[in-house]
Amino acid sequence: APRELRFAEFGPNAGARAGGLEWLDEEMRKRSNGELGLDIIWGGALVGAAGAAQAISDGVADMGSIVPVYAPGQLVTYEVVDTPQFPDEYVGMMATYDLMTQNPTALKEAEDFNVVYFGNYTTGPTQLLTRDKPVKSLADLEGMTIRATGAFVPAIEGFGGATVSVSQPNVYEALSNGSVDGSTTYYYVVDGYKQYEVAKYMTELNMGQTLAFGIVFNKGAYDSLTPEQQDMMNELGHDFTVRMAEIMHTSRTETKAKLAAGIDGKKVEMIDAPDDMRKAMIDLAEKDAVNWAEKANGKGLDADAVRGDFDKRVADYQAKVDSEGYPWK
């Protein structure tokens, strides 16, 4: 019988990310000649998003999806990948993958936290979904109440909007009753969480993505694999990240078309954010990076060096995409 690694997944077994995990399970069985597979526990039934990183560190699961922000102070290097504002899924995920598997600070932090990095997800670029008022310029933000997190809080408040925090599953109700006028969100979330049912407009800001979002092993579980299995898994982690980039990229394009055409008669009108609006918001959001730098320096890490390393990797992948295109095309 194959050895089934216990995998803690906080998301449902539906949608783009679940497809990626099912691919991962099949691919693992194929590449290990049936020796290794995944026993995926969906929906956070074992541990939720907030507890996942710590639980995997403690060996509650052998592997799992984590968001390092929920494990304050543990994987600070990983969190750097959320500070720059750029929309490309493939570039962001591969740069993150390389950072997490090659940067010595990242490796040291992971080792101290008793985890081994495997591969990456992304949310895709951040967009602005609004209920019944289209946002076509910065001036439209004035007086609106927008659900936002992190760097998008200063970016919206800077232009006269109010921001509130609402957890993603509750955004539906908040939009539905109008207690928020809009929400920063991502295409796959608009689809998966049915937000298109309660909002009419989507301003394509194409701002930054959440990249501090990936899969880790419990270190003991990783160490218990044979050297051949470890090699296989290292390669698979890379291939998974590429595969996930493709899934997220195509799902964004498809969801966009679907929303524009209407799902069950519910249409979302797409609005291209004007360049000056996008630029102005990105400027404010980028300034939020000082918070991360403070946190990293506070932990005794060299914030500038880490950020510099990541920026260089991003630039390299961007150049590669510009010249060669995406690997799946």
Binding site: P12, A14, G43, P169, N170, Y172, E173, K194, E197
Partner: peptide, 19 residues
């Protein structure tokens, strides 16, 4: 409604929460 259980169900089952 409102009901958090239906929202969760809608997300898992990929069904319209409004419906």
């Amino acid at each position: 409604p409102p009901s958090i259980l239906f929202i969760l169900f809608g997300i898992f089952a990929e069904q319209s929460i409004a419906k």
